[in-house]
Nucleic acid binder design. Structure first.
Lengths: 155, 155
DNA sequence: GTTATATTTGTATAAATATGCAACGACCTA
DNA sequence: TAGGTCGTTGCATATTTATACAAATATAAC
């Protein structure tokens, strides 16, 4: 339906360009754009469009479109800020990073020359750690936190 | 203080590994992990941790950790014509593609944000899927076929 | 056209989430 | 010790969001 498509476009435009904290607020903005809509329909629209609600420093919460990568306002020079998670599976460790940082992150890990980390493979946002079969995960984490202190925030 | 850090870690672990649709559900899981918490505190914790709530096909809505904020998993169809095989080995999946397509193929897989697929690494014609330890291979296949319909031809 | 079937919407309400406020405890300093 | 500040929490509740249901509207088949 074209009516609906048009409405979606307007919703997207507003969310992309403004900080919207609630559906009521968005309804008001839509009205200003000539779109009448009830809260229930909007709720369904947002769900259909995969719009997420995320915490935001100033506004409390805001809606964000899918594919919109959240960029921190303050870019940190600390490389370990770019590590987002560490999980283990069998004899592998999977270290996720912000896009593009995997290679940079993997270098100091290689340089650890830890007997527990046999090697690493870096993609774009993932560093694969191949671990010794009987490696102790706690020891791995300790080693990593030693070179990436900020990592303790995400563990 | 340390109590709180510990609680955060548990919350993160649960959110990373499971599909949680509501705070009440998360409270129940936390209790199973020995963490007693009220809804109001949890709400504040989630806000503090920048945890977002995003629409999800099966569960309605799920909580996701920052930097994994939801992307479009609906993908143009014919790209999946370039997948040639899928095999499993231990907790790894190996997806072979025509030369040069691995990166393109891996993007929508990353965007699935499946708790079963911890991460992907794309080479030139191979995508390595790192799976959760107890991941169900059938479920993985289902997820992949959902975004790459043509894959069903080669399975 | 008519009828059947599916999609979209609003209303009313349920469900889920955020938050003001008071209370508690940790940690100061005098 | 008493008194002060600060961070954390639970309770109660306000706010916000999702959804069951029925009505309206579109879509398709005849």
């Amino acid at each position: 339906m074209n009516q609906k498509t048009q409405r979606f476009a307007t919703i997207r435009k507003i969310i992309r360009n403004e900080l919207i904290s609630s559906q009521e607020e968005l309804i008001a903005r839509l009205r200003e754009c000539g779109v009448e809509i009830t809260q229930s329909t909007l709720s369904r629209d947002l769900k259909y469009m995969n719009v997420a609600k995320v915490p935001h420093k100033e506004k409390g919460y805001i809606y964000v479109l899918p594919n919109t990568v959240q960029h921190d306002a303050n870019v940190s020079s600390n490389i370990s800020d770019n590590i987002t998670s560490l999980t283990f599976s069998g004899n592998l460790g999977v270290l996720k990073t912000k896009s593009g940082y995997a290679s940079a992150i993997s270098v100091p890990i290689d340089n650890l020359d830890s007997p527990d980390i046999l090697g690493t493979i870096a993609g774009d946002n993932t560093v694969l750690l191949i671990l010794r079969e009987d490696a102790n995960r706690s020891h791995i984490i300790e080693s990593l936190v030693r070179i990436f202190p900020m990592m303790s925030n995400i563990l």
